[in-house]
Design a protein around this nucleic acid. Sequence first.
RNA 1: CGGGGUGUGGCGCAGUGGUAGCGCACCGGCUUUGGGAGCCGGGGGCCGGGGGUUCAAGUCCCCCCACCCCGACCA
Length: 573
Amino acid sequence: MRMSQLFLRTLRDAPTDADVDSLRLLSRAGYVRKVAAGFYSWLPLGSRVLRNVERIVREEMDAAGAQEVLLPIAQPLELWQQSGREQLYGPLMFRISDRKDAGYCLAPTAEELITATVRGEYSSYRDLPVNLYQIQWKYRDELRPRFGLLRSREFLMKDAYSFDTDAANLRKSYQLMYDAYHKVFERCALNFRPVRAQSGDIGGDVNHEFMAVANIGEDDFVWCKSCDYAANVEAAVRRSPEPVAPGSQPMSKIATPDKPGINAVAEHLGCAASELLKCLAFETEAGAIGLALVPGDREVNEYALKVALGGVAYEFLDDAAFARFPRLPKGYIGAHNQHIEIAVADPSVLARTSWVTGANEVDHHVTDAVVGRDFQPTVVAPIVVVASGDVCPECDGELSVDRGIEVGHVFQIGTKYSESLGATFTDENGEAHPMVMGCYGIGISRVVAAIVEEHHDEAGICWPAEISPYAVHLIALTGKGATSEEVRQAAVAIYDGLNSAGVSVVYDDRDVSPGVKFADADLLGVPVQLVVGAKGLARGVVERKLRKTGSRDELAIDAVLGQYIGEGAKSRG
RNA sequence: CGGGGUGUGGCGCAGUGGUAGCGCACCGGCUUUGGGAGCCGGGGGCCGGGGGUUCAAGUCCCCCCACCCCGACCA
């Protein structure tokens, strides 16, 4: 492609509402343009990049035995009512209606439709397993779209769905996808980790998120520096500290006027927040009042607390609820409160001889509260949010908490959708069973943004070879001198040669100054830049610069084609 | 949903009640040509929309819309 023909305008200043590196650079370099909150146009360069990620995903899905389909974006709401997810998604779904006032949604995902599709075709154990996938635009009317392409309202997603006869076979299908995801993200040159995760709204049990490590990510995940333990921050656990012998000092009450917070009290007493016992009051759905007890410098993992309660739903008290329980003075609650029915303590609560905690009386705290003497946990279970520096539960190594971008997610769903939508098969004995499903997503457009987040510098994007819109960025420094035409002809010869060798090349033939060409080349981020200039030409060489490292060398002009023949297959751009 | 902020040319921004500006980009001319060149000359605006106040509104008031940021229970 000649740059004089390419539909492209680069920007020196990024639009002000581009708030992350990926969107700033993709906007400046003319890959995408914002149309509305959470909606983006993909211009020629962006479209090529998107296709490249698609291509990688398609190749790996096909290699893993999945078959591509294409389902409609607009889906009858009725289908979503059958699965019960119409309510669940609520305003997150874009809704439309036709002229007859029938309700449709723009699909936020496709479990329902794919299940209905398989139900309509397959009904025997002989048909299974089967794995279908599509690469299709998805729509979610996010509460707050942000981070540009990382959380948009329209996004391109690969979603695959496996159907098996039983859980053991599901695990095989799951493993195939899990392995395929590794290949996909390796080819995308992402620094990623598969982490154990909670299942969220889709339902089901075993699942992993594939997190691309980034500063800007929306999710924290925990990983061990010594082994391969990794988990979503909600699912992560640590090795709890060992219990210690209780203290013997008697508990005593002290005045802490107008000090309702951990930090305020710690500062007032001149002690560390970790010496205070944090007591969070909650009410279960059955109406029982409980406290979650953790060290003052720790936060409660709400998911872990629910597990500790045996799966019982609960809510932390809000101001209105506190008003109903005058015996629970917000900010001054102590673990020795007589009015609570449940006390869930993290094991670390047993690892300190005594605690400073609320006195259950406004403007007062107590010191030397001793577990087992002054207060009794009814449940001891790990409920703190894991933090960097905690001990790995599997190998005693050190855990680290980092930000990540969720680029993929694999689930073992089970029979939730096959049951509600009636996707059953008949087994060898003629008995009907619901199919056992897995579902597997990759955010294609999000992957593009994640790659830019990881592969860029001050000057612009540095694409991995397989993702780059072109394999080679050819720059002709023609100028207006005597050698101008000579340089132009040499560049065109290389351009034509590379093209006919199947190497995708973008050729900067514009009549602009060298500085503009260099700056744009760095901004666009094609991995290899070839510069044809009068100086080199006189010596029969062209200069080659690698975008990522900035390293330069010279190639004999006759050797250029030889160098890049074969590159076409690696990066067809 | 709550709070805050911003809407002026494609992008970035200035603008004090009195003729709508600057930089980049764009068009034409001349010069320049190895890291976002210089000079000269141009084109491009329903100042987010609607109502009001005023002799006069980009500017003041009211309503609406869009976009951005923060928050949405950790005592």
